[in-house]
């Protein structure tokens, strides 16, 4: 009957998406996995041989590897700390009664729409430049020695830029969550004698907890892949001081032409991302049941 036709049609409509994503997921990943066990350099492409675990060993024994893992963690952790704490504070502030709330909201979320190369270059040249940047102007105004951000604090500088880009995202999501908090609940708590701090601890924080989790997980997925910001500012340096895992893989791959090594790095990145993804999927999946 009609329902059977509908079901067949439904499958047909779903097929292209499923097929494309299936190919998209399996083919490149299988190739990466395969390459990771090969000696394969683009400078010498005819000489390909089985490498066993050599690429992993090579990656593992490279001191830059551990530094890049550590940098990745610092970058992700630093940005998360700034954006979550700052996002909660900003969301609470914007949620207060004020004039021009709509415009304030627009100003605050704007950095999210700035493409990464622009964000990084604007910060590098116009804000953090040791000679002509606004920070340098402020330092001189205060009679201090201007800081050469990208040589003295390369990773921290990148953390600031990336945090500036993602703070709006955290703010916007937490603000949305905050505004869904039942007004009567707040009034009930007030009647029960809870002051602002109590209401924040016992009502707002538990209410925001889920959204904060979502913010952390989604940002982590994106932050693990930060690339353009590093490329246009420090190019990973000085040395490996601001090289994260994606950037190291990029260096190995397209600057060192080492397909095997880059692939081994890629597999490590997949494992890292999957750990985060596992928790994110659980958080999102729970929501689907409602």
């Amino acid at each position: 009957m009609a329902t059977q036709n509908t079901r067949a049609l439904a499958r047909l409509m779903l097929a292209p998406s499923v097929g494309l994503l299936l190919i998209w997921m399996i083919v490149p990943l299988a190739m990466t996995l395969y390459f990771s066990f090969q000696n394969y350099n683009l400078l010498n492409p005819t000489n390909v041989s089985f490498a066993g675990l050599f690429n992993y060993q090579y990656f593992y024994s490279d001191p830059a590897f551990f530094q890049s893992i550590w940098n990745t963690m610092l970058l992700v952790g630093g940005v998360l700390l700034i954006t979550v704490v700052g996002g909660v504070a900003l969301a609470l502030l914007i949620d207060q009664p004020m004039w021009g709330q709509g415009i304030v909201r627009i100003l605050v979320i704007s950095p999210f729409f700035v493409m990464p190369p622009v964000a990084a270059l604007v910060w590098k040249n116009m804000i953090m430049h040791p000679g002509y940047g606004v920070f340098a102007d402020i330092s001189r105004f205060l009679g201090l020695q201007p800081i050469d951000w990208f040589s003295q604090w390369p990773l921290f500088s990148i953390v600031i830029i990336v945090a500036w880009q993602w703070l709006p995202f955290a703010t916007l999501i937490l603000l949305t969550a905050l505004q869904s908090l039942d007004g009567e609940q707040k009034e009930a708590a007030e009647m029960d004698g809870a002051n602002f701090l109590n209401r924040f601890i016992y009502l707002t924080v538990p209410h925001l907890a889920r959204s904060i989790t979502v913010v952390i997980l989604i940002q982590t997925i994106f932050l693990l892949g930060v690339y353009a910001e590093i490329l246009v500012t420090t190019n990973g340096g000085p040395g490996y001081a601001s090289t994260n895992l994606p950037f190291l893989i990029y260096r190995t791959a397209l600057l060192g032409y080492d397909v095997g090594g880059a692939s081994a790095g890629g597999i490590i990145a997949v494992i890292l991302a999957n750990i985060v993804a596992f928790f994110l999927m659980r958080a999102v999946g729970k929501n689907l049941d409602k």
Binding site: W24, M31, G225, P246, Y250, M281, G285
Partner: peptide, 26 residues
């Protein structure tokens, strides 16, 4: 349906850099 949706979402979790080499070569 739920499994398909979750699986689709999971493809988004793959780090771009992990498939840089194969995609570049393709």
């Amino acid at each position: 349906t739920k499994d398909i949706l979750m699986w689709m979402l999971s493809t988004k979790m793959m780090p771009a850099v992990a498939v840089l080499m194969p995609i570049y070569l393709i």
